[in-house]
Amino acid sequence: MITSHVHRDRWISVAVFLTLAAIWQVLSMVYTAEAQPGEPMIAGWQVLFTNTFLAMSDYWQGGFGVPAVADGAARSYPAAFLAVASHSIDTIGRLAIGLAVGGAAGLLFGLAVSWSRWTRRLFDWPLQFLRTLPLLAMVPLFQLWFGTYFLGEVLFVAYGIGVIVFAGTVNAVRNVPQIYIDNARSLGASRWTLCRTIVLPAIFPAMRSTILLSLGAGWSAVLGAEYLGAQSGLGYIIVYAQQFAYLDRMFFIALLFIVYTSISYWAIGRLSARWLAWAPPSQRR
C-alpha cells in the first residue's frame, strides 16, 4: 500500500508541474506586452527553447572550434550550449569549492568550540560576532579584498556557508547525549577518538538539515557574488541580460537555477540518507 501511495504522490507532483508549465504558456499568449520590440515580458516555451537559447551564444567566448558571436560569427546551437555549459561550470565550481571550504571550516570551528574551555574562549565569541554580519553587505568588501573572478567569489560562498555550518555544529554537539560520551570514555576512548567515532556520527542527523540549509544559502551567495561584479557565471548572465531588458534570458537562467538547485538538494538528500542507514527512518527523510 505504501508503494502505491508513493507512486500516486509522484504522479500528482508531475501533474502539478505540467499544469504550471501550461499556465505559463497561456499567460504568455494572453499577456503579449513587450519590454522592447521583439522582447516579450512573458516568453512562451516556443520562444525560450529557440530564440532565447540561441541568444545564449552571445555569452560564448569562443573555443572548441566554435567561434564567438563577438568575433562576427552567427548565433548557433553549439555556441549556445557551450556558453550555458561554461558559465554553469563556473557557477557550480565556485559553489562546490565554497561549500567544501566553508563546510570544513564551519565544522572544524564548531567542533573546536566544544573541544575544551580554552578553545571555546578562543573561537566562540569572535565567530558568533562574525555570524551577525549581513551576508550580502559583505560582497563588495570580499571583491575588493580578493578580486572578482575566482578567489573573491569562492571565499564569499565559503563565508556564507561556514557561518551556518558553524552555528549548526555548535548546536548539534550540544545535543549529543551524554551517555554515549560517558560510555566511550569508560571504554577507553581518547579525546580525539571520541570526537571522530562518537561526536561526528552523533551530530550527523542534526547536521543533515544544516547541510541542506547551507546549500540553499550557498546558491544565494554564489548568485549574489556574481550579480555584484563577476565576469562569468550564471549570475553574470542575468545582470548582463537585465541591462538590456532581455526578460526571456533572465527567465531562462532562472529556470536553469531551479533545475540545478533541485538536483543538488536531491543528490545531497540521497547521499546523507545512505550515511544514515543506522538511524530510525524518521531521521532519514
Binding site: 551517555i179 560510555n183 569508560s186 571504554l187 577507553g188 556520527p201
Partner: peptide, 21 residues
C-alpha cells in the same frame, strides 16, 4: 583520575552506539 578501561560501566539507559553495527 577519570575513566579507565580497567573499570567497565553498564549504564541504566541504552548506551549502545546506534551508528555502529
Amino acid at each position: 583520575s577519570g575513566p579507565g578501561r580497567e573499570r567497565g560501566m553498564v549504564f541504566q539507559k541504552d548506551s549502545v552506539f546506534p551508528w555502529m553495527r
